[in-house]
Design a protein around this nucleic acid. Structure first.
Lengths: 95, 95
DNA sequence: GTGAAAGATCGACGGCTGTCGATGGGATGC
DNA sequence: GCATCCCATCGACAGCCGTCGATCTTTCAC
């Protein structure tokens, strides 16, 4: 039974979102953290500009890997809670 | 314990190799096949030029996902036999 | 040797993507 | 109101990547 085209495209989008050193490490941080992580923490630990960090996080959000909660002027990100089993297995193999 | 940089880069190369619809489906075909698959089968089933198919397979080969055996004028590809556990788990979650 | 077939390589083109500085937008504090 | 801070968005640029036609290499058949 060949892979359905729709599922291929969906998997590819997920893979492209993870296929960047910065984003893969961001996901790693979020996966290991028990609490949501502030964007300011990422801008502090990666040697990249703030717009770049924001851009990467937006890509992770667009593929449904992370979700955001705002508190005042801060934005806290965490891995989405209801990731499907396949995605969780993939992260488990990666991070 | 954060991810080692070398392992991040290695994972990213693997993810980039898989983050394309054609290559992901190629890997799917190889994973499901009990026997090596001829390049001519891929050029026949994908609506892409022969150089493009060859280019994609070369990328899969460069990251160590597949290996080739030639017989006469034909080239047969299969998933590399000694993939590490992490990579196998990743393919299991994807294909 | 000649020709044909499979596959790899090359050169070129357009589109996507990572990066930045500049700017915008909302919340906080004075 | 005004300045300041965090973050998102925009515009621009360079580099990578998917794709193709053309060509080269190797093998086989005659």
């Amino acid at each position: 039974m060949p892979m359905a085209i729709a599922r291929v495209e969906e998997s590819v989008e997920l893979l492209k979102a993870l296929a960047d050193p910065t984003r893969l490490q961001m996901v790693g941080v979020l996966k290991r953290s028990s609490e949501p992580v502030c964007i300011c923490d990422f801008t502090a630990s990666f040697e990249l500009s703030q717009p770049t960090i924001s851009h990467h996080m937006a890509r992770l959000k667009n593929v449904g890997l992370v979700e955001v909660s705002r508190s005042g002027i801060w934005a806290y990100y965490r891995l989405k809670s209801n990731l499907d089993q396949r995605t969780r297995a993939l992260l488990e193999a990666l991070v």
